[in-house]
Design a protein around this nucleic acid. Structure first.
Lengths: 166, 166
DNA sequence: GTCCATGCAAACCTTTTGCACTATA
DNA sequence: TATAGTGCAAAAGGTTTGCATGGAC
């Protein structure tokens, strides 16, 4: 099976990168790249495994983890932790490379957005603490418009909140 | 051993909370609360275990996890993931309850700070996407002033970055 | 032909759970 | 004394590693 057409040039960038590093361009590495560059979703390792197998390729999980490590090091792919107990991966080509995520607690939908306030926050860290930022991680959790309009309610953990009365 | 004086009233808040919920106020729960409310550090479960034992109390890890769950539900304590592979915990009393973290990749020092830009970012999520935020998580990674001045260098992952040349 | 990648299974680490026993109220 | 908590050990779940085999160049 062939990868989505849009993904092909990005997979080529990865292949070129591998050759530049003197690393073999293997069938499995390309299969993982096909999947990751072929979508704008934020994929888990299990999802990547399933899609590679759906394409007719056999692959082991260890190879997926090792290939993702290469992709993240190359900075062609970003790794995220949305607090689910596992990591998710998204490619950084054909989209705004720097963006943050709105994560819906009702339906798990992830919306990408960018705020220029983030620059100010980093500037503030420099001005106030002499801190030199190299990267930041921002996730906003809540309800997406659809869930909000559908009246979805988030469980309130079920317990009272003493901090408000302190 | 007695807990730090400053921690005592906060531990009392937790004890009152437990009674209000109809839950037993046990030695172990109070010992964990003593440790967590007795510092402004961001403690791992291992650190909490060590400090409880240093105070002369015996405790199992399962009890620490179960007590931290209560503390987080009560909102007296916040749980954080700084990407280390385990969680850290900090109390939310006697400090700005809402704050974010600057995490030094050189010495692991954590600096708390607050930026009013965060409010604007949440407003932007509402205005732009109709997203209703309930909480957000922001961590800025980089070098603290001391490490920066000491000339600490961060490893660059060792590989070239093809994305800049795409 | 050399070197590295792959697949599998085992190991690892943090966190959760089951269960017999103990402490709280 | 009834109810819920504790400790221990086992389980769970995601990720990493060791090693013999197989593929890339």
């Amino acid at each position: 099976m062939t990868p989505p057409v849009a993904a092909v040039p990005f997979v080529r960038v990865f292949a070129r990168y591998l050759r530049e590093q003197g690393l073999p361009v293997t069938h499995q590495r390309i299969a993982v790249a096909d999947v990751v560059f072929g979508t704008d979703e934020h994929l888990s390792v299990d999802q990547i495994e399933g899609r590679v197998r759906d394409q007719g390729d056999r692959i082991g999980k260890a190879t997926i983890y090792r290939t993702l490590d290469l992709l993240v090091r190359s900075r062609l792919v970003a790794e995220h932790d949305f607090g689910e107990g596992f990591k998710r991966y998204e490619h950084r080509l054909s989209r705004q490379p720097e963006h943050e995520h709105l994560i819906c607690l009702g339906c798990d939908k992830v919306t990408e957005f960018h705020s220029r306030e983030l620059k100010k926050i980093q500037d503030q860290a420099v001005a106030e603490f002499g801190f030199q930022p190299t990267r930041l991680s921002l996730e906003v959790y809540g309800l997406c418009a659809a869930c909000h309009e559908a009246g979805v309610e988030l469980p309130d953990y079920g317990l009272t909140c003493p901090i408000d009365s302190v």
